[in-house]
């Protein structure tokens, strides 16, 4: 984790400088908006990483991770989410019933995603519990 946000924020800053140049010489509202969006997204990524863990802004090599994590091996929910988004958009161009069908699958797969995440969290808690006596 250590230092993870630095590269992203550095890159965002170079972007910002270039976009300011672009704005000075080519002040079109569309260009200003797209450029601002890109800069904001990149900065936001860096800031989110920093908020998750402060060491993201500390330079130097990362230390070993010690906390256990449970690793998912498969996810039907993720597959269905991808496919249902595809079905909804396909339906917009092809046939309206597919939009409703896709939306139904999306709701179900989001439900399944919640279950998957809960069981993952439970596994993690169990692992933490097992580790504690040591």
């Amino acid at each position: 984790m250590r230092g993870g946000a630095i590269a992203i924020l550095a890159w965002a800053t170079v972007l910002l400088v270039l976009f300011i140049g672009n704005w000075i010489w080519d002040a079109k509202p569309v260009n200003a908006a797209t450029a601002a969006f890109a800069a904001v997204v990149t900065y936001a990524t860096g800031v989110a990483l920093w908020l998750a863990r402060r060491e993201a802004l500390r330079p130097g090599p990362p230390a070993p991770r010690s906390e256990p994590e449970s690793v998912p091996q498969s996810s039907l929910a993720a597959v269905l989410i991808g496919l249902s988004v595809g079905t909804i958009l396909f339906g917009l161009a092809w046939a309206n019933f597919l939009v409703y069908f896709g939306a139904g699958i999306l709701v179900l797969s989001l439900g399944r995603l919640v279950l998957e995440l809960r069981s993952e969290r439970a596994t993690r808690r169990r692992l933490l519990g097992e580790e504690e006596p040591r």
Binding site: V71, S75, A78, V79, G86, A93, L113
Partner: peptide, 26 residues
């Protein structure tokens, strides 16, 4: 690293992309 972060998002992304490819070719 032993794994990818947010692997479900990546998996969902793959299927969305594939759906896009199939829709485009359809």
């Amino acid at each position: 690293a032993v794994r990818l972060s947010a692997p479900r998002l990546s998996l969902a992304g793959f299927w969305t992309w594939l759906a896009g490819g199939l829709v485009m070719e359809s």
